[in-house]
């Protein structure tokens, strides 16, 4: 008997997943991984009211900027967000599978999928994708953040390309620009004015914008903030009330007052 409420299984019954373009044979790299779009900076960090998840807007292929309005912070359902780094084709597809899986589970089983169950679902997708990840054509390294209704708190998880799942205590980062951010977060938590997790929403948002600007400074594949083109990172807030996108206007004000002109 099939596992109840398993959307991936339903999809497979309808022929999904038999496509082979994402899974070239081992040792035969059809595409030079450098030509794939992988560069990015995404991160999630806890703050006083929950979790903020942010991502830059740039999509690159090698040293070519492909697109400047990518949304890498994807709302999977009302209480969870996935920030993606890696090959967009696979990453967006995973997000869509997850979104439909959670909906399908809730509607068929008449109860919400638990937070644990959601994590497991993402882990399974990554594991199934391992051959493509190892071949370099389907690498996805996501950060997953959500509100755990059972425990009443926001949580952050990050994954390796094979689907191993790790819980982040304070923050998680992914993508080519992430090492800069990781360094700053470590420094701030250790020698800053206090743990980042204690910041209020406004201070946390300012911090997010500064982190993104720093990442863009040292990583050509990270878009950072382009105030001239009105391009701000996508920032989403996850809390007991669900997922909310921080409006670009608010980021604009904070950026010009506290990032650009701040000494």
């Amino acid at each position: 008997m099939r596992q109840q409420g398993d959307f991936l299984h339903v999809l497979k019954e309808h022929g999904y997943g038999s496509e082979t373009i994402m899974q070239p044979a081992f040792g035969q790299s059809v595409i030079n991984p450098a030509e794939l779009t992988t560069g990015t900076t995404v991160f999630a960090m806890k703050y006083a009211d929950g979790v903020l998840v942010a991502g830059d807007r740039r999509a690159t292929a090698g040293n070519v900027v492909m697109y400047d309005r990518t949304d890498k912070v994807l709302e999977i359902d009302r209480y969870s967000v996935m920030a993606i780094a890696g090959v967009p084709a696979t990453a967006f597809e995973m997000a869509r599978v997850l979104e439909h899986s959670f909906k399908y589970y809730r509607r068929s089983q008449l109860q919400d999928l638990s937070f644990e169950g959601k994590l497991r679902a993402l882990s399974t997708l990554l594991k199934n994708n391992a051959p493509a990840a190892l071949a370099g054509t389907g690498t996805v390294v996501p950060v997953f953040a959500g509100y755990d209704a059972l425990e009443g708190c926001g949580k952050i998880f990050f994954y390796d390309i094979l689907g191993a799942e790790f819980e982040a205590v304070e923050y998680a980062v992914s993508g080519s620009g992430s090492s800069t951010i990781r360094g700053i977060l470590y420094y701030m938590n250790r020698w800053g004015d206090g743990p980042v997790a204690g910041l209020n929403e406004e201070d946390a948002l300012i911090f997010v914008l500064r982190l993104m600007t720093s990442a863009a400074e040292f990583d050509s594949a990270t878009g950072g903030v382009d105030a001239q083109a009105q391009l701000y990172p996508i920032v989403k807030r996850v809390s007991a009330e669900g997922v909310r996108t921080i409006p670009a206007d608010r980021l604009k004000t904070l950026f010009s007052e506290k990032v650009l002109n701040h000494v």
Binding site: F7, V10, R96, V97, H100, K103, Y104, S108
Partner: peptide, 15 residues
């Protein structure tokens, strides 16, 4: 029949 509807709707909505 509810499951039939759910499967149809979600597969279509996804694909």
């Amino acid at each position: 029949l509810r499951y039939t509807m759910l499967d149809m709707a979600h597969v279509e909505g996804f694909q």
